[in-house]
């Protein structure tokens, strides 16, 4: 049994419970145990533009919570991953550490911060996941979306390849689905500018949705609640703006993996997806 501290952040526990549910159920299937960081706060990323130090202290506090349990952190959101990783590095700087300590926080054990998908790839491994697949999703065409902070900045993540990412495609391929190979894997969903310039954010989201459509994707795979907000919650807006119809379901990777592990759609939280993944359920 592998144990990790699960960090949820802001969006997942309130707006993306289906992601959380699928993650927990998939984890159980693959022999992963989570210890919940019940006192976990916002990772700090939303305030980074306001004051980087404040956001780093928030992130460091969350890293500290896991450190006190002596467990590596698993995150579900790309931005949380980058923010917490940044703090984990920052905690090695004495000046920052001093402020952190002054606030009464502690960091007794050096721990790692990784996204759940990276943990699946690195700690469980492609071979073991492959063995656990019970219901290959042979009929599906899938386009995967990595999102920015899963791999970038590479000085924090040192994982996969920024220019030619492959880990999520590899993991998606394990489910038996056809993985669409395309060039623009690095595209940003636009989530970060949604609050500043909605029109621009919608334009950014449209890029990948149109690639998905042109490639006849049945589903778009996301691993970050920010990206899902853009591709799923705002899909209607994108359609309206560009006068088109996409109707492409957006699933979190654990939801897809869960289905291929043989979990029932409810256990993967499929009924909570805004764009109903009926096409998937019917093809199961």
């Amino acid at each position: 049994m592998k144990r990790y501290a699960l960090f949820l952040g802001c969006t997942v526990p309130v707006r993306a419970q289906h992601y959380e549910l699928a993650t927990r159920n998939v984890a159980k299937e693959l022999g992963i145990e989570f210890v919940d960081l019940k006192e976990g706060s916002c990772c700090g990323f939303p305030l980074k533009a306001l004051d980087a130090e404040t956001s780093l202290l928030m992130a460091a506090r969350n890293v500290g919570l896991a450190s006190n349990l002596g467990l590596d952190v698993v995150t579900l959101c790309n931005s949380c991953t980058a923010m917490l990783s940044d703090a984990q590095v920052k905690l090695k700087e004495s000046e920052f550490r001093k402020k952190f300590t002054e606030l009464g926080f502690t960091y007794p054990n050096e721990i790692k911060v990784r996204h759940f998908v990276r943990v699946l790839y690195e700690d469980i491994g492609v071979e073991d996941i492959k063995k656990a697949i019970r219901k290959p999703l042979n009929n599906l065409r899938i386009i995967s979306h990595y999102g920015c902070h899963y791999l970038r900045p590479s000085y924090l993540h040192t994982f996969d390849s920024v220019e030619n990412p492959h880990t999520l495609d590899e993991l998606t391929g394990l489910t038996g689905a056809t993985v669409i190979d395309y060039q623009e894997k690095k595209l940003c969903c636009g989530g970060s500018v949604l609050g500043v310039d909605e029109e621009l954010a919608v334009k950014m989201a449209n890029q990948k949705l149109s690639i998905a459509k042109n490639n006849n994707a049945d589903v778009l795979i996301s691993i970050c609640p920010f990206c899902t907000v853009m591709y799923e919650d705002n899909q209607r807006k994108v359609e309206a703006k560009f006068n088109t119809t996409y109707n492409i379901p957006v699933l979190y990777y654990p939801q897809l993996l869960g289905l291929s592990l043989g979990l029932p759609p409810d256990a993967c939280g499929l009924k909570f997806n805004r764009i109903k993944p009926d096409n998937i359920i019917s093809k199961l």
Partner: peptide
Amino acid sequence: LWLCAHCHACTE
């Protein structure tokens, strides 16, 4: 200035 999506494409 606030349009930066902080996606780090530039950094890379």
